[in-house]
């Protein structure tokens, strides 16, 4: 156990989340209960130590709220699409596995992109190549190269949105340059 200790500030999001879960499970958000929950959260985080999540150091709430709304809209639209495919197309549905190279090499962003894209029905991460940060995505109802290009663009757009929310400054400026080009 010779790992780098992380600062309390870096650990804070985890602790806040643990206290929230504690309060939710007790269904009691009184100060005393929250204080006890915070105590347990600190003990748990110290005893069951996990590799630290390397955050980008910024979080843009103004970008996060529209992203969440658009995400929810996409989930609704795509759910009905998969429902339609299941009922109408059924056994004849054609899929594809598409390789999508991502811009970011941060584990957090690759994971977040994979999660968001997996939660939107119709796409599913099959394999991750961490060294080149490439996602291999199984897309349902991808019949030709055009559909595949659309899927690839959607994944890249999702990643761009996540970089704008919580990417590092370097990733953000690289994204701005790409958009300007």
């Amino acid at each position: 156990m010779n790992r780098k200790r992380i600062s309390l500030r870096q650990e804070l999001p985890l602790l806040v989340w643990l206290v929230f879960v504690w309060g939710a499970l007790w269904q009691n958000f009184s100060p005393g209960n929250l204080l006890f929950g915070a105590l347990i959260a600190v003990v748990v985080a110290r005893v069951f130590y996990l590799p630290p999540v390397e955050l980008g150091g910024r979080f843009n709430v103004l970008r996060a709220v529209p992203f969440a709304v658009v995400f929810l809209g996409k989930v609704v639209a795509a759910s009905f699409q998969v429902l339609y495919l299941a009922v109408v197309r059924g056994p004849d549905v054609v899929s594809a596995i598409v390789a999508v190279p991502l811009r970011s090499h941060s584990d957090l962003l690759v994971t977040a992109t994979g999660h968001v894209i997996s939660l939107i029905p119709g796409s599913l991460v099959v394999e991750v190549d961490r060294s080149t940060s490439t996602l291999y995505i199984h897309g349902i109802n991808v019949r030709n190269a055009q559909d595949a290009a659309k899927l690839r663009k959607e994944v890249r757009d999702t990643e761009a949105g996540l970089i704008r929310i919580m990417g590092t400054k370097e990733e953000l400026s690289a994204l701005a340059q790409e958009a300007a080009a």
């Binding site: 989930v75 609704v76 795509a78 759910s79 998969v82 429902l83 495919l85 299941a86 009922v87 059924g90 056994p91 004849d92 549905v93 899929s95 997996s118 939660l119 939107i120 029905p121 119709g122 599913l124 099959v126 199984h138 349902i140």
Partner: peptide, 23 residues
């Protein structure tokens, strides 16, 4: 319905995991 009608494991995973996030 998707679990029953889709042809292979991967497409079944779409039906098995996704619509119920919204549901």
């Amino acid at each position: 319905v998707g679990l029953l009608r889709f042809p292979d494991l991967m497409s079944r995973m779409h039906a098995a995991t996704k619509p119920q996030v919204l549901g």
